[in-house]
């Protein structure tokens, strides 16, 4: 363990091994919020900071036992497909996603479980009279699997002393049903996100099924925990998208709140 304290990290160049990227990535998360639900389709890209190209011209639909909801591609944001009309998904229902793109059909199923309302954050003072988020939601609670999203905006604050050019932030936090050493022991340092008094926070809590929790855990392993002290062997994330697709289709019930930072 002591040796680890002498470990160092430095930038390096690494040649990415070429491979077959001929598939699609589906980011499909429908909620119980009454709105135009969204499905994003994109292509993988070969370079670390490459741009995900949108998958346009696909036929996208989500169905439940009683109805089919068609999704239409946005003219402004190619690759983003929105339900024709505002809809809200329901708990204890199974939804089926169907995508037809470039001669291939991809399907996935998702089940929605209820969300338990609770608030995951404290807003605490930071340097220069700014504020930051202290997550209070536990990383482990098998009885309340959840994904928390906080969207912070301070674009309306023109007289702030804050000099950062960014005026918006989006942060995620998860409560899962596994205990992972990389999460608990020597977690890797995260980017500092500071915001001024007067910022507006929208906090959402999403319900998460056990299958989606397994996906989110693998997502953390490949993103936040990569390079950590007890890192797992690497591998592709599990997916519920058929036919070699990547990404995940989930159905989540949501509770939300808006806070003005004091």
């Amino acid at each position: 363990m002591l040796i680890f304290l002498f470990s160092c990290e430095e930038k390096t160049d690494w040649d990415i091994q070429p491979g077959n990227l001929q598939t699609i990535v589906a980011e499909a998360l429908i909620t119980n919020e009454y709105k135009q639900q969204e499905v994003k389709l994109s292509k993988p890209f070969p370079d670390l900071n490459g741009q995900a190209l949108p998958v346009s011209g696909a036929v996208v639909a989500i169905s439940d036992e009683t109805q089919v909801m068609n999704f239409i591609e946005s003219a402004e944001v190619p690759g983003s497909y929105f339900s024709e009309i505002p809809i809200g998904a329901s708990i204890d229902k199974t939804y089926v996603l169907n995508i037809y793109s470039e001669g291939e059909t991809y399907t996935a199923e998702a089940y929605m479980v209820p969300v338990i309302p609770s608030w995951p954050i404290q807003i605490v003072p930071a340097e220069d009279n700014l504020r930051e988020i202290n997550w209070t939601a536990p990383g482990y609670n098998p009885d309340d699997l959840a994904m928390y999203e906080v969207i912070i905006s301070w674009t309306h604050l023109t007289d702030t002393i804050f000099t950062d050019t960014r005026t918006e932030a989006r942060m995620l936090h998860y409560t899962l049903n596994t205990i992972d050493i990389s999460y608990v022991v020597f977690p890797q340092e995260k980017e500092e996100v500071l915001f001024p008094v007067g910022s507006i926070l929208i906090v959402r809590k999403y319900s998460v099924t056990e299958d989606y929790a397994a996906y989110l855990r693998a997502l953390l392993a490949e993103t936040e925990w990569q390079g950590s002290l007890f890192e797992d062997a690497r591998g592709n994330l599990p997916t519920n998208i058929s036919n070699g697709g990547f990404g995940y289709f989930s159905a989540c019930s949501v509770v939300a709140d808006t806070i003005v930072v004091e």
Partner: peptide, 8 residues
């Protein structure tokens, strides 16, 4: 990796 993709 042989490539990357974006998710959420």
């Amino acid at each position: 990796p042989i490539g990357f993709y974006t998710y959420n």
